[in-house]
């Protein structure tokens, strides 16, 4: 039964891929052996997953599942992917609730919080390189930044800080419109 195999394979991916979205990639490479998709299709899938809303891991599971077993396949693969998370996080939450006031847990979080802020900068720096910096850097005045993207970034950042009440989706749609109008 293909649905059982799909569920189990994505359950495994969800269970062992630690560190989010891109950590699922090695597992997806491995699944090529089932013939649900080919390597070039996987590359397309990554491009699609990156350009649609939703967690990349979920997008990948849905797309692979659809290729393997149409609509039910897409749904079952995704459920397989998220089931381990749900189980593990519920257990972690119960443990955390019990010990969250213990000094050792408090001091662990004291160290974690600045590190998470730093990690988010590290993750964002990849996006920054991809969107704002030229792909082949040169040291000419116009060789470093994608000027349209840099300008939009500066304007948007000011707007984000000025209009705190505006919903993020407004900025996302605004970005899409500007991207299309100015051919970014």
């Amino acid at each position: 039964m293909i649905y059982i195999t799909l569920f189990l394979e994505f359950f495994k991916t969800g269970l062992f891929a630690i560190g989010g979205g891109m950590a699922t990639l090695p597992f997806l490479y491995d699944l090529v052996k089932y013939g649900w998709y080919t390597m070039p299709e996987l590359m397309d899938m990554i491009a699609i997953a990156e350009s649609t809303p939703g967690p990349i891991g979920v997008n990948m599971a849905t797309y692979a599942g659809f290729n393997a077993g149409a609509i039910p396949g897409g749904i079952i693969a995704t459920l397989g992917l998220v089931t381990p998370s749900i189980i593990v996080i519920i257990v972690v939450y119960k443990i955390l609730e019990k010990f969250k006031n213990a000094p050792v847990v408090q001091s662990a979080f004291y160290g974690l919080r600045p590190a998470v802020a730093g990690l988010i900068i590290v993750a964002t720096s990849d996006l920054f390189k991809l969107t704002i910096l030229k792909q082949n850097l040169t040291w000419a005045w116009n060789g470093i930044f994608e000027l349209k993207a840099l300008l939009l970034f500066l304007v948007m950042t000011v707007l984000v800080f000025l209009f705190k009440k505006v919903h993020p989706i407004v900025f996302i749609l605004g970005g899409a419109v500007v991207g299309i109008l100015f051919g970014m």
Partner: peptide, 26 residues
Amino acid sequence: HAFAGIRVAVLAMMTKTIVSMFKNGV
């Protein structure tokens, strides 16, 4: 083109998130 613009928008929103995470942790 749309997603090139969306990526920049996400980046701009991230700056605000980073500022609040920094204030929170440091």
